[in-house]
């Protein structure tokens, strides 16, 4: 029984999310108790115990306030904007994904909520306004100070940790959406016949199948 292999870890790649040292300790009361995923159609086969747990996650209140969600949405779209290949993070409903996933992965709650407040306070100190109320130029100026871990100033380290986590969640939410999966060019998850690496790709890397492989392996007639 060995399905672990490395594939899961390979997909994840290297981990780098830091821990926010100065997270907001006093969390404001949750105002909105609208179910976070009332409209989610859960198409997965589940055992009875799982169904109960899923109902709880789906009916949990929203962790982020509307104001926080507005900030998350702006940041997500800065991280993954619309470009000439695909749409933006909000086009792919990444903010909604983040709103859902923190109910389940509660370890992200404090770093994100605290990070959002840290960001607003920095913006108020610098520009006199919360992040969402800043001009686009000010927002980008702020983001530039927390988006590059190696060159960021030490006093911005907590903001870097926050932004790194948000970038990871945004990327994972985006590339696991229909829009993002098409963008990154994953072409599988459909019935097909594996006939080996395409000839032009073999040629590109100077590789070829051995006579033994061609003789022993499954061959399908090329259409």
């Amino acid at each position: 029984m060995d399905r672990r292999k490395s594939l899961k870890t390979i997909a994840i790649g290297t981990f780098g999310a830091g821990v926010l040292a100065e997270a907001c300790k006093t969390e404001p009361k949750k105002a909105d108790t609208t179910p976070v995923a009332a409209n989610t159609t859960d198409a997965i086969n589940r055992m009875p115990e799982e169904k109960l747990a899923q109902e709880k996650f789906d009916s949990a209140g929203k962790f982020f306030t509307d104001a926080e969600m507005a900030t998350i949405t702006v940041l997500c779209d800065i991280i993954i904007p619309k470009d000439d290949v695909s749409g933006s993070a909000s086009d792919a409903k990444v903010p909604e994904f983040i709103q859902y996933i923190v109910n389940e992965m509660t370890e992200h709650q404090t770093p994100l909520k605290g990070g959002l407040r840290w960001l607003d306070l920095k913006c108020i100190n610098l520009y006199g306004k919360a992040f969402v109320d800043c001009t686009q130029a000010q927002q980008i100026e702020m983001v530039d100070q927390i988006a590059y871990p190696k060159k960021a100033k030490p006093e911005m380290a907590q903001g870097v940790a926050f932004f790194t986590l948000l970038r990871d969640l945004t990327a994972t939410g985006f590339y696991t959406s229909e829009i993002g999966t098409a963008d990154v060019g994953y072409m599988g998850n459909k019935p097909n016949q594996w006939n080996g690496v395409p000839d032009d790709v073999l040629k590109q890397y100077g590789l070829s199948y051995s006579e033994k492989e061609l003789k022993e392996c499954v061959n399908y007639d090329k259409a």
Partner: peptide, 10 residues
């Protein structure tokens, strides 16, 4: 691509 995909691009 599944949850965790593209984590840690930095």
């Amino acid at each position: 691509p599944l949850y965790g995909f593209n984590w840690g691009i930095e």
